[in-house]
Design a protein around this nucleic acid. Sequence first.
DNA 1: ACTCGTTCTTGACCCACGTCAAGTGCCCGT
DNA 2: ACGGGCACTTGACGTGGGTCAAGAACGAGT
Lengths: 260, 260
Amino acid sequence: MLAEAATPEVSPVSFREAFSVSTEEECPAVTGARCSGCRLRPVCLWSGLSEAAERELGSLAFAHRRLKLGQALYRSGEPFQAIYLVRSGFIKTVVLLEDGREQVTGLYMPGETLGMDGIASARHASDAIALEDGDVCVVPYDRLEALSREASAVQRHLHRLFSKEIVREQRMMLLLGSMRAEERVAAFLLNLSERFTALGFSPSEFVLRMTREEIGSLLGMKLETVSRIFSRFHKDRLIEIEGKHVRIVSSAGLRRIIGH
Amino acid sequence: MLAEAATPEVSPVSFREAFSVSTEEECPAVTGARCSGCRLRPVCLWSGLSEAAERELGSLAFAHRRLKLGQALYRSGEPFQAIYLVRSGFIKTVVLLEDGREQVTGLYMPGETLGMDGIASARHASDAIALEDGDVCVVPYDRLEALSREASAVQRHLHRLFSKEIVREQRMMLLLGSMRAEERVAAFLLNLSERFTALGFSPSEFVLRMTREEIGSLLGMKLETVSRIFSRFHKDRLIEIEGKHVRIVSSAGLRRIIGH
DNA sequence: ACTCGTTCTTGACCCACGTCAAGTGCCCGT
DNA sequence: ACGGGCACTTGACGTGGGTCAAGAACGAGT
């Protein structure tokens, strides 16, 4: 049933096409690539640069790093050296309790930045794991510090990035501390919808890159509860769902759920 | 029973004495005060400055602002202008849901910094409310940006501050998403103990500045649950508690609770 | 000292979500 | 095409913590 409905209203190209890993020529695994031609420009760290500042800084170029599904970008305790801009693929961050329990603390999509948790102690405080094959832009922190001192546009952008992460985590705390399971799932779906929209894709139809267990961990509930709530939303004609493929049928309905 | 046991092993002066609001002479309400004489130096934003950098920057001085119990330092939606260093008193930050539900997202003690959530959108994303009379050091953000560009020690310190806040919130997400109520309360008490210790006070005996309801909101549970768990910990000889006065009898026992 | 309002404690009950378990289907490698 | 292992769904049941309610203790103001 979802198959028929799958004709995209908004996105003419699939997400995978648009944000697939670049060919070796335009994106070598280790050597840098000019920022000027980058398709992530509009969402990138450097997008705040005035042309003047950009000229002054010359040819920005950073190494890329490819990641395969399940591979770690960094792990908790590893020395902190760089922050990362997701170019393609999805990445989750996870913090662990000694006894093995884990909490997914973030889900990062192309254009989003992660790794800032490492600055405080010079070691990463979480694991970052690729949810599918993809690649990231590696921004060495010492270089970023220097740039940030030279160009106030970079500084402003970087500070905004920090602050955004703080605000995001505040919202997650609100979600985890004050909302019921059903509300959390609704908020999660609406949030994904917004972020896909920002990337130029359909607000109503997308593919979850996480398992039910990972979603549950992010939202502070068990995988069975996630599954049951997806089923209930489907029954109530708020969404259509087949495995990881979701279509939001009534975003208003989802919003109504959060309002109680 | 707590009264007899109250003789401080570690702190010779009471918290209130040491961190009370300064007299008007040394701490005027609006005009600045030199940082050089400040009693918060060891924990302050500027403590990372080398002597050279400090001389270069000349006489740092920032306005102070007094707060009475219940008063807001800033409110969600207000234009962002400064970040704040707590000088005395405790401050909570709160984020609200439209329907009135609220989540306490942070508890800030003297020496700690808050307000960074406002940078992203130029408006504060939470309310900051004084839990008792106290005062804060007002650090205008534009001035901080400039200082951060001029002195890399300030920059490094500021970035670490951002990062610490991100890590703190990650831990709160772990607490809210993966721990049972009993574990959350144990973790909360141990965390307070650590922070009081860092300020030079007894690790085992302190006064909660929040109501059971506020603690519950911070930890994602109802006030009755907080109360019941305090009572249970008391019965199990892990703590002694009388109203807001807590004494940790067995920190090892509390730690054991978190380990399951 | 007295009063009113807020905060805290405790009990009884209930429900949202976790746990356990069985069964299905999908994906991946051979 | 086949087999094995994950991922997912769904049901039955248990329980941690929420809800409701009553009373006690505290504290600020008069």
